[in-house]
Design a protein around this nucleic acid. Structure first.
Lengths: 206, 206
DNA sequence: TAGATTGTTAATCGATTAACAATC
DNA sequence: TAGATTGTTAATCGATTAACAATC
């Protein structure tokens, strides 16, 4: 008897809750309520309570939620109570920025190695990493058992790179190339394309 | 008698359709169908037809959609049949990557000027721009009538920078800082935080 | 004409909100 | 105890899908 799966849209909000809780913690707060959390995020308190109730009972009537405790629970649910090794493929300007970004580690991720297929880049440094030959992707991913990849290659190389990543055993891809990827259903893909957001906003501008 | 507003979730898919159409066009295709488009995007054909029907009739029974024509229509709807000037605030690694990115212009956006508050950066070059003093934000935004901003400053400066942008007349902010912003309802904000996507995916990993 | 695909309606499905008993 | 807030149920709201007449 399996519990029915949690709606994916609910799962997608948990990282948002976790981020807000971390911020509250940094402000020295210890307790919050669904209402306070909702106000920060522009979400109704009812929705927050409903979302959390999918996973358990984390609050106390009359009091609210202990921020540290709820954070820990959410980290466990999202499986970021550990650190995931990540490979970065494509070291252009964006890849370089990602390699340098210091905000991954305390949220559950660590870039393990970075790759490019440009002979002029291979062997050079970026963000404290030596740029590896993309031809060695499979080998290294398999040797280290890495499951998560960030893809920051040009659009016309994205599908090919994704195919290779999947082949090597990657199970989750964050794709920065502005193109849809076709992968087996067992592999998750999420997309980041700033222009989609900009175009969504200009619709509403006069 | 106003037509009821189009659901925002529908508006959010239009840029996705537009992007896929541009890709098809680059492949030399002239005609497509809701089914073909849906397969590329992992969306049902019914949803695509329903979405488009909110704005008009763009196809031909028995034939499908002319890609060039539908693209033009979507560009008009999204108001990217013009080029929007954008200011970039924050020239760290990410800001530098955005300043260098060549993919904005043909999708309706052009970075007009870039700003930082670090005296060591002001006056230096990045992506063909001279980094301006963030203290001059208001002046320049107002002089050029700019309505769109990209925010790539550290988290703890994001709200302050957003306040100044709003004050200067900005109506749409794409926020790369991993924090929720509080702005008047007349100002649109969209968020990009790669870690939210990564955490969403790890939930599903074993 | 026969075949294909749109635009649209109605049915289904799923997500959000309101409300409140339970209880800290 | 009185006040506050959770967890949960039922009601509402909205989005997606299925189906098909219209028509190219």
């Amino acid at each position: 008897m399996r519990s029915s799966p949690v709606p994916d849209i609910v799962v997608g909000r948990l990282p948002l809750y976790l981020r807000a809780l971390a911020q509250m913690q940094a402000e020295g707060k210890e307790i919050t309520s669904s209402q306070e959390l909702g106000e920060r995020l522009g979400i109704s308190s009812a929705q927050i309570r409903k979302d959390l109730s999918q996973f358990g009972e984390f609050g106390k009537q009359g009091t609210g939620y202990n921020i540290g405790y709820l954070s820990d629970q959410l980290k466990g649910i999202l499986k970021v109570d550990r650190v995931w090794d990540v490979v970065l493929v494509g070291v252009g300007d964006l890849g370089r920025a990602l390699a340098n970004y210091g905000g991954f580690l305390d949220r559950g991720f660590r870039i393990r190695s970075i790759f490019d297929n440009d002979p002029k880049k291979i062997g050079k440094q970026a963000g404290g990493f030596t740029i590896q030959n993309a031809a060695d992707l499979d080998k290294q991913i398999q040797a280290a058992g890495i499951q998560v990849a960030m893809l920051a290659v040009p659009s016309d190389e994205a599908q090919g790179a994704a195919d290779r990543l999947v082949e090597a055993g990657i199970r989750a891809i964050l794709n920065y190339a502005p193109t849809s990827l076709s992968v087996p259903t067992s592999v998750r893909v999420e997309y980041i394309d700033p222009v989609l957001h900009l175009q969504h906003m200009t619709y509403h501008l006069p």
